[in-house]
Nucleic acid binder design. Structure first.
Lengths: 262, 262
DNA sequence: TACACGCGTCTCTTGTAAGAGACAATCGTA
DNA sequence: TACGATTGTCTCTTACAAGAGACGCGTGTA
């Protein structure tokens, strides 16, 4: 008895995890739906989160009854429910920074015609919290809720400003340092970037996420020195020096507004 | 053993419920935060949902780690977290009707100057899913996420159109039939209203929620005969017949747009 | 027609999570 | 300074939820 851990290897050879807490299963389910971004059958859901079918059925039933999930169409697929939307709006209401930040981002993209985003750290990950597409013919990729490795972005460098080296290391995995095109950043360079971004008060990265855009980002402070969020513009990589500088000026101006009461 | 139910009356005389499933506790916590609409201390939270303190601490920790809740300010109070906001946005993205409905409501209130709302059934309850305040000096009460007894509203009459009498009875409690001013509706009258609203294709109620407003509502269909939502305008009770008629025309027009692809 | 598959429901067992309660630390206040 | 109240953590017990698996049903396809 009590070997402290009930993992076991079944005859088939695959690891059969021990009993999981229902709440954890639910959290996995939600996260899974967040990544799929669409309704999914309950059977597939069980497979997706690697949970027993019977358990998944009971949990989904609870969640549907509670309104956190909704049965889609034929009644076989599930996705997020109205309740989550309502809770999300509650969050927005209780969060001045987010509310005003969204507004500001919408303004920015309308005024400049460029894609504009509000970004935050979300459990240690870089997250696009709100995005507003620009008016350019080719749509620059960006979607609300998208999570991207911190080192790939200008905002990431600002969000980590003020953290200890150890904290940064803890947040950045080796994989995160590998760019989409295969290049690998050096951790020291990244940390140096962060320090630099901190003193300059803005950050520009070129051709990191893709080869055709650069990203201009500025910090939004919730308290002196505490970076709560960033606002950024995603522009074509060949944008002129002058325009870039002017856009950064605009960004800093707007971010300052947010920071005041933030 | 096995009396099938572990409720017990402690010496103090108060009912000590049996063990509760963690997930249910969590659902209660979320619902509680939704009603308080503000951050709350963990101790108070435990009291609020009538859960043991130790349990509440563990659950809240899980939820905070998952990002569904966030620690506010001093780290003692909790409220909804970014993750819920992201899930909520996922819901919006997956829901054309809601997305376009919000837009339409914003348009309506801008064009008419009146308070406009999008309403839906949410686990059997009438819910204001999105609201846009009008330009009138006295602000007409209405908040996103607010839940109100069905019989108090014009929208409620439309949302129940097409349901069997038994289904309606199941959704409406006796308390729901008592208006804020103490008057009590008769269930039969309410059901008659529903039938009438169904054939006329709109519904107007005067002085139900309060004595100074009337509510003009029209249905939005997700499928022929299936009322998925309502759009409504909340106007002063002395609004003229002509204006009322014209507003209803406008509402029907906009609702029809929504219904097409809904 | 037979077979394989996925779905939704149910039953039974047991590993474990919910809860009671004790504890030290902190706070306000008298 | 002493107190009652509250806060966050921890331990231990047992009631019960998670999970395995069987079942019946509908469906596609050979």
């Amino acid at each position: 008895m009590q070997d402290g851990n009930a993992f076991a290897v079944s005859a088939g050879g695959k690891i059969s995890g021990s009993r999981e807490k229902g709440l954890n299963r639910v959290l996995e389910i939600l996260e899974f739906l967040h990544t799929t971004q669409r309704a999914i059958g309950i059977g597939d859901l069980a497979k997706g989160v690697n949970a027993p079918r019977s358990t998944t059925y009971t949990l989904v039933r609870s969640l549907v009854d509670a309104g956190l999930l909704e049965l889609e169409g034929d009644g076989n697929r599930v996705y997020f429910g109205k309740k989550l939307y309502l809770y999300g709006m509650d969050y927005v209401r209780g969060n001045d920074l987010l509310r005003r930040g969204r507004q500001e981002v919408d303004n920015l993209s309308r005024e400049t015609g460029e894609t504009s985003e509000l970004c935050m750290l979300q459990s240690g990950r870089y997250t696009i919290v709100h995005a507003s597409p620009g008016t350019r013919p080719f749509r620059i990729s960006s979607a609300t809720g998208l999570q991207i490795p911190l080192p790939w972005t200008a905002s990431g460098r600002l969000l980590l400003a003020g953290l200890e080296r150890a904290e940064i290391e803890a947040m950045v995995s080796d994989d995160d340092l590998v760019l989409p095109d295969g290049r690998k950043l050096k951790l020291d360079d990244f940390i140096a970037d962060i320090a630099k971004a901190r003193v300059t008060g803005y950050c520009v990265t070129s051709g990191l996420v893709d080869a055709y855009t650069k990203c201009l980002a500025v910090p939004v402070f919730s308290a002196p020195g505490k970076v709560e969020a960033t606002m950024c513009l995603v522009v074509p990589i060949d944008t002129s020096e002058e325009r870039t500088a002017s856009l950064i000026g605009l960004l800093r101006d707007r971010a300052a507004r947010l920071s005041i009461a933030g």
